[in-house]
Amino acid sequence: MTITTARTTRPAAGSFARDAPAPAQRTNDVWVGLALFLGAIISVILGFFAQLMGSSGLDVKWGLVYASALSLPFVVRTSYPITVAIVVNVVYVVGMEAGATELYVGQIALFLSMYTVGAWVNDRRRAQLARFAIMAVMAGWLLVATFRAATEPVPEGMPDAVGAMSPMVAYMMIQWLINAVFFGAAYVMGDRAYEAALGRKALAARTRELEEQQEIASAQAVMLDRVRIARELHDVVAHHVSSMGVQAGAARAVLDQNPDGAKRALTVVEESSRQVIGELRHLLDTLRGGDDDHEDPPSTVTLAALDQLVRASEAAGTPTSL
């Protein structure tokens, strides 16, 4: 008899990496990209007519090109997160320098691209370096914009400097604070999403492991039941059958010389057969209904039954000692 036991193995290296995006996730990326594209087009058109950039704003057709380049890469954001993040940030900087009239969807695109890198890149060092590089480039661009705002003439309609800081410099400082919080939140939330995905994966793996262990335990329980049934059958039947064989042999040997002794031996055989049939029925009833349906457990012959076996053998005329 072989009983299979569960083995605990170390998790493979791949278990510490997030699974590739499923088809449903890729479909969701397409919808995200299309939603951003539609929002960017609407924002570009409304911004153009609102003259957000004044006369220096991009023409509508170039604004639509900007909106497309900014949003459509998101249809593959989880498959190529770093590439999408680089493209989106470069397009954003170029568009802002060129006077794009879209100011709102671009912010969402920057946040989502940074978040996606943190949430989907399994090479965590590479994800960290990519995000730091993007933040460094954006900080450099914002620094140039701040210097330019501080040195250029004050735009028409904006008041002159108040104390040591002009309104334009104050405005740029607000932009610094907003961007620090903005990119910091995207960084942290991306890492949290990645850790949560690993947690769900580990939980699913543990669930599968528990199910496998349960199957093994069930197989072991069946095997142990078979062993118990075999033991019970042996204990119930073996001594009766052996006694019947001895008595039948004794009856055959003395049938001509001692008919009365042969009759007694055959009587013992008859009684033993009845007993074994009754005990077999009791055992089968217990197996069919379960142990809980019977107050008495299946009959099991113990050492205490040896005296009874000796008496039965002596009663049949077979000299027996214990």
Score class of each variant (00 low, 15 high):
Y80A: 07
A217I: 05
R200T: 07
F48Q: 07
N89C: 04
R208P: 01
E156H: 11
N258L: 04
M1Y: 09
L283C: 04
R77W: 05
A13M: 12
R231L: 12
V246G: 04
R231V: 07
A12I: 04
W176L: 13
G63Q: 01
G249S: 15
T300R: 14
G245R: 14
D191I: 03
R231T: 11
V30R: 09
T267I: 07
L110I: 06
A22H: 10
L266N: 05
M158D: 08
A262G: 09
V188R: 10
G157R: 03
M172L: 07
P167I: 02
I42N: 01
A35F: 06
Q257L: 11
L52Q: 08
T8A: 10
M1N: 11
I178H: 06
V90M: 06
S273N: 13
P319D: 12
V246R: 12
I174C: 09
A185I: 13
G199H: 09
R7K: 14
Q213F: 03
D291V: 10
Y171D: 10
A170K: 10
A35E: 01
T2G: 05
A20N: 11
E279D: 15
S55M: 08
A253P: 02
P298N: 07
L38T: 13
R252M: 15
V91R: 00
S242T: 13
V94F: 06
S321H: 14
L322T: 09
D256R: 12
A315M: 11
G199W: 03
F132H: 09
P81Y: 00
I42S: 05
P11M: 13
Y194V: 03
R124L: 08
D235P: 00
D260N: 11
V236S: 07
A109M: 06
T318G: 02
I229Q: 11
L52A: 05
L210E: 09
R226K: 12
L103W: 10
G63H: 00
V76L: 14
I41Y: 00
R226F: 08
T78E: 08
V117P: 00
V254G: 03
R124Y: 04
A219P: 01
M165P: 01
V268M: 08
A202H: 15
A304P: 02
E195D: 14
F183V: 02
P155W: 05
A305I: 03
M1K: 10
V94L: 12
A100K: 00
W120R: 03
T116E: 04
E270S: 14
S218P: 01
V91D: 00
P21M: 11
L103Q: 11
R288K: 11
I41P: 00
V117G: 00
N258A: 14
T78D: 03
A133D: 05
T151E: 13
A197W: 03
L34F: 09
G54M: 10
I229V: 15
A196P: 01
V254N: 05
G290F: 09
M135S: 04
D293A: 15
E314F: 02
